[in-house]
Design a protein around this nucleic acid. Structure first.
Lengths: 363, 363
DNA sequence: CTGAAAGCGCTAACAT
DNA sequence: ATGTTAGCGCTTTCAG
């Protein structure tokens, strides 16, 4: 089925294609009567201008690509929602490029990132947003970083919550260290002294930074840091369970509170604690990181550090839009995290009281 | 910055653009030596063919659009992951079109659907997948349905878990009625007789069908259906809480088990039950619907009906690919739901025993 | 095996 | 206010 073009409309309206184009784009005055006639024909034929042809000549597509590691991780849809919200108003459409980290093979994931980077360039997107994946690496290889730098020479790239060595990128990040401090100080303020840190990956900068915040707060409070109470190796619920099991199965002192590297691992930690017969928060305080929607919906509701996903997304979209419009804009935007107190943390004193109750009942 | 084109490569290689195109597409034999030369230049200049120009002439873009109501609802990312998995291998890229139902205004949402439908056509996507939104309506307006039908005349559309009146669409669905039966029979098999149905919207076909399954199973078991134990009005956690509160705050008999229209409302129901001092599943069995990843991670883990999101996505992508390739394929694909038993449901007898314990402890 | 030339559908000078 | 024409960057006959 032959699709209708500006020529078809022009012919039937007895005008030139230029005139049709003019009414299509409001790019020059057109006599009201002819404009009506053309509009009528457009309506009649359900004519829709071919965006490819238009973009080919205008050198802008109104498309932006977003590369992320796993759409199934609730953190990302949240950021995406922020992006869409902001970008929709500016007439952009999104290419979603999920590099599918869920299928473990990390090599394949980075490869897919490279692949998508190329595809997006070929498709002539106006800009690219990256989140997760290689930009989260504490030490990203020179080649992988350079690849992105090359892309960035040709079109605007903005990094969310990450960075790459060897070049300056536009990026919007959350102050992770501050988040770590916030979480730990909350626990300390509750009277806890025996605080563990659990989850994340030591190779990832977010984990390193959150851990740095934890360390900072502990030291500032004059509290000791036990290396065996710092356990990393994953961001999943499953990982959280494993770490907590480890913490609880060793003999000797146990922490009374846990800072988790993210909400998912916090949920795992809670599940494990409950399985071990502990009550959260009465016997054990647990704080997460991210504030995914789920955090407010688990039982008990998770106390956590909000990364302001929506704002992260909106800001990134805003910056990219400015970049595309060739407006100058700050290279770095830092958002401050926020403590969200819910039900999974409680004063240490509660423990003490409970313990006293317990002892007297055994009387 | 002038981007390099086939002409630049051709000139420098002392060949015609045709030859460059040929090595780019492997569309005709090229002398090994010239091929090497061209490949070298491509490498040297980091040349990337402009996909817009190519698509303009080939009339295919390798882009497919996916229209969904809310990426923030964990059900959709799951389906998306399935889509990506399948479509990536076939060289497709995705336009993500989130119509943002989260901003309540339902009218605006349908408008945005129409808008995206147009944008996608202008961008010349090879096909469109729709999920949620108007296609979930039990009675969608003629105009809104026709709009999609018109699109479907121009390019392949596949509907996931929905339908539209007045035209036959390719679609892949889950047998919702069977799901409702499955959930209810599970509860009945556990000895429950007083079973409520909670959540969803009466205007939506999925709710109607799940409810139909519930009714069917209840009748088949000879159990009475109480109209005041069927409460609809939302799919969110918040809605689930409200409905459960309603159920628990009325005097008189209470149900001992609840079929929820989806996992989110089931979680809300659990939270409310717990707040009311009930234990799940000991005092109250609750079953969800969807099997979002979260379902396995709440406490207690949710017994639910799996809608096989991943498979839904993969199948839809497969069908769309066939359609794009002009291969014939069944109009309707029905997937069977699956009962996933976890921790939120238990035999009624447990209740009875507990009750007995309680009474005897009261001396 | 390779080149010349005709478009794909649209926009944008440049004329009129 | 409107028409003519030259491309945007690529693929694809049709010749050779």
């Amino acid at each position: 089925m032959k699709s209708v073009t500006v020529y078809d409309i022009a012919r039937e309206a007895n005008v030139s294609v230029a005139t049709v184009s003019r009414v299509l784009n409001n790019t020059a005055p057109v006599k009201a009567s002819t404009r009506e006639r053309i509009l009528g024909l457009i309506q009649k034929h359900q004519f829709q201008p071919n965006a490819l042809a238009r973009s080919l000549i205008k050198k802008e597509t109104g498309m932006i690509g977003i590369i992320l590691p796993d759409i199934t991780n609730p953190f990302f849809p949240e950021v995406l929602a922020g992006l869409e919200q902001e970008a929709r108003n500016n007439g952009y459409t999104f290419f979603l490029c999920d590099t599918g980290s869920s299928n473990q093979d990390i090599k394949a994931q980075y490869q897919r990132e490279s692949q998508y980077l190329n595809i997006l360039m070929e498709k002539q997107v106006d800009g690219i947003i990256m989140i997760g994946g290689r930009i989260d690496l504490a030490r990203c290889s020179k080649e992988m970083a350079k690849e992105v730098a090359e892309v960035n020479k040709r079109l605007p790239v903005v990094l969310i919550n990450g960075n790459l060595p060897g070049a300056k990128f536009h990026r919007v990040i959350i102050d992770e260290v501050a988040g770590g401090v916030l979480a730990t100080e909350h626990l300390i303020g509750l009277g806890h002294k025996d605080i563990a840190f659990v989850g994340g990956y030591k190779q990832m900068s977010n984990t390193v930074q959150r851990l740095e915040g934890y360390t900072k707060a502990m030291q500032q409070a004059g509290l000791p840091i036990r290396e065996d109470w710092i356990i990393t190796g994953g961001f999943t619920v499953e990982a959280g369970k494993v770490f907590m099991n480890e913490l609880l199965s060793t003999e000797g002192a146990r922490p009374t509170a846990i800072v988790c590297a993210n909400d998912l691992s916090a949920i795992g930690a809670i599940k494990s604690a409950v399985k071990h017969g502990l009550r959260v928060p009465e016997d054990m305080s647990i704080i997460g990181f991210d504030d995914i929607p789920l955090a407010a919906n688990v039982i008990p509701e998770l106390t956590t550090i909000s990364l302001k996903c929506l704002e992260l997304g909106r800001t990134a979209a805003h910056i990219l839009h400015q970049l595309i419009g060739k407006n100058s804009i700050d290279t770095l935007t830092v958002l401050q995290p926020e403590l969200v107190v819910r039900e999974s943390t409680a004063p240490l004193s509660v423990n003490v009281i409970k313990m006293a109750d317990y002892l007297s009942s055994q009387g």
